[in-house]
């Protein structure tokens, strides 16, 4: 399990290729990469990500542990950048290795929902009209809360896996 908080760029393809090493039990790898977005209705020149050094890594690691309690994960990678980023650049990457796709998809989404609203990062957008802090949105909070009602064990995954033994 790897958690990295860094200012420099990362190569998502290389990271994915390295995940799991010689692991042969894995039938599924799920990956999400978040990027800096600039659209014509809301153009941005750059984005600056602030974080809480010391707390950030520990807080993400705690949540990776929670994901491991919920699903039988074989390996997991979280990378989150801070500092100044340009449109099109990667901000965040979550990749999960598991025996079957159900737990890989679900754990990756769980980790992203957490990173959106519980990891100590704050985004500021620099636009032609000035700079502004990105506001938290209600949907992100709701996305996180739905996991509260999820069973923490993998019973559900097991029955699902029975129908999809190839991952």
């Amino acid at each position: 399990m790897t958690v990295r908080v860094q200012s420099g760029p990362f190569d998502s393809g290389r990271e994915l290729a390295a995940l799991g090493g010689a692991e042969t039990k894995a039938g599924a790898m799920a990956c999400f990469v978040g990027k800096v977005r600039s659209v014509s209705a809301n153009p941005i020149a750059s984005m600056t990500v602030e974080h809480y050094p010391g707390m950030t890594e520990a807080a993400i690691s705690q949540h990776v542990d929670e994901a491991k309690r919920r699903w039988p994960l074989l390996d997991c990678l979280v990378i989150h950048r801070f500092g100044k980023l340009m449109p099109g650049e990667n901000i965040v990457m979550v990749a999960v290795l598991a025996e079957h796709r159900s737990e890989a998809f679900r754990a990756a989404e769980f980790l992203m929902d957490y990173l959106k609203s519980r990891a100590p990062f704050w985004k500021k957008e620099m636009t032609p009209a000035g700079s502004r802090w990105v506001e938290a949105v209600r949907q992100d909070e709701e996305a996180l809360q739905r996991w509260d009602s999820e069973p923490a064990s993998s019973d559900q995954n097991q029955s699902f896996s029975d129908f999809h033994p190839s991952g």
């Binding site: 989150h80 992203m112 959106k116 519980r118 990891a119 100590p120 704050w122 802090w133 938290a136």
Partner: peptide
């Protein structure tokens, strides 16, 4: 003790 706005990672 840290004081900050709602977090906006990801």
């Amino acid at each position: 003790i840290a004081v900050f706005p709602p977090m906006t990672g990801g």
